[in-house]
Nucleic acid binder design. Structure first.
Length: 251
DNA sequence: AAGGAGGGCAACCGCCGCGTG
DNA sequence: TCACGCGGCGGTTGCCCTCCT
C-alpha cells in the first residue's frame, strides 16, 4: 500500500499562489506563529495543502529572506559548501542567512553548474573534467551523489575566480554523508583569500556559525512568532526587511 | 512583428527520519 | 518494538519570461 497523501487531493488548490492567499497565510502566521502545518490552511482559510503553505512561507513569504541573485561571495560559499556537503541544500542554506535551500538549489542548477562546467570542473565531483577517466557509474562518490573533494579542483576554482577564495579539506578526503564529522571540521583557510580578507566567509564556514542556532532564522527567537506571539513583534521583522512588499499585505 | 527555443524559478511529488503512542 | 503522523528534504516538473531568428 502506498503512503497516504499529505492532504486530501479533493478541494485542494494547486499552482501559483495569489496575493490574496499570500495575505491570508502571512496574516495567520504573524498572528498565531508557526504551528501544525497541516492545520494552517484550515485555520487560515486556505484551500491549500499544509506542505504547500510551509513551502510558500519558507521559500517566499518569510520576511528575513534576501531577495535577488546570490552575490559572488555567496556563490563562492555555495561552491565550497557543495564540495564538502554534496547536494545537501538545506545544510548549505543553513550557512547562508536569508537564503533558502530551494533558491540555492535552483541557483546551483541554473548558474553555478554551467559556470563550473565552463571552467572545466565537474559540478558533481568538483574534479577537473579532463582528469576524469572513469564513468560516473564507476565512481562511488558519484553514485552516492557525494563529491570527491580535492585541493586541485578547488584551486582551479580559485584560479578561475580570483576575487573569492574558498576553502576545502586539506587532506582531500571526499565529503561523506556517513561521516558527520566533516560537518564539524573547520574549513582550511584559503591561502589566496585569507580570513583577514573575508572574515565573514570564514565565520560562516566555521562550526561556531553552524552550531549557533540564532542564525537559524526559522527558529530565531528574535523574530519567531511562536516565541513572540504578538502581532507587534511579528511586524518588527517585516519592518526589518526593506524590500519586502509590506504594503501588499496592508500591514 | 511573430514564433520558437531556452533559461529561470516557483511549486509539486514522493521519500525519509524522527517523535509519539 | 511497531505503526502512524508529521515535518523536512532533494529531485523534478511545468509555467512564464526573455532572447534570438
Amino acid at each position: 500500500m502506498g503512503r497516504q497523501p499529505c492532504c486530501d487531493k479533493l478541494g485542494v488548490k494547486k499552482g501559483p499562489w495569489t496575493a490574496e492567499e499570500d495575505k491570508k497565510l502571512v496574516n495567520f502566521l504573524l498572528t498565531h506563529g508557526q504551528c501544525c502545518w497541516r492545520a494552517v490552511p484550515k485555520l487560515a482559510g486556505l484551500r491549500r495543502c499544509g506542505k504547500s503553505c510551509r513551502l510558500r512561507w519558507i521559500n517566499y513569504l518569510r520576511p528575513d529572506l534576501k531577495r535577488g541573485l546570490l552575490n559572488d561571495a555567496e556563490e563562492q560559499l555555495v561552491i565550497d559548501l557543495h564540495a564538502r556537503l554534496g547536494n545537501r541544500w538545506s545544510k548549505i542554506a543553513a550557512r547562508l542567512p536569508g537564503r533558502t535551500d530551494n533558491e540555492i538549489k535552483n541557483h546551483w542548477n541554473t548558474h553555478i553548474k554551467k559556470k563550473l562546467v565552463k571552467m572545466g570542473i565537474d559540478p558533481i565531483t568538483h574534479e577537473p573534467l579532463h582528469k576524469q577517466v572513469t564513468t560516473p557509474q564507476e565512481m562511488p562518490c558519484e553514485a552516492n551523489n557525494q563529491p570527491a573533494n580535492s585541493d586541485m579542483s578547488i584551486q582551479q576554482i580559485n584560479t578561475n575566480i580570483p576575487e573569492h577564495g574558498i576553502s576545502t579539506n586539506s587532506d582531500g578526503n571526499s565529503a561523506s554523508e556517513n561521516s558527520p564529522s566533516n560537518d564539524s571540521e573547520p574549513a582550511e583557510p584559503n591561502p589566496n583569500y585569507s580570513e583577514e580578507e573575508d572574515p565573514l566567509v570564514s565565520f560562516i564556514l566555521s562550526d561556531t556559525f553552524l552550531e549557533d542556532l540564532t542564525w537559524d532564522f526559522s527558529t530565531s527567537s528574535e523574530y519567531s512568532s511562536a516565541d513572540n506571539p504578538t502581532e507587534e513583534n511579528s511586524l518588527a521583522w517585516f519592518m526589518d526587511c526593506n524590500d519586502f512588499g509590506v504594503e501588499d499585505f496592508e500591514l
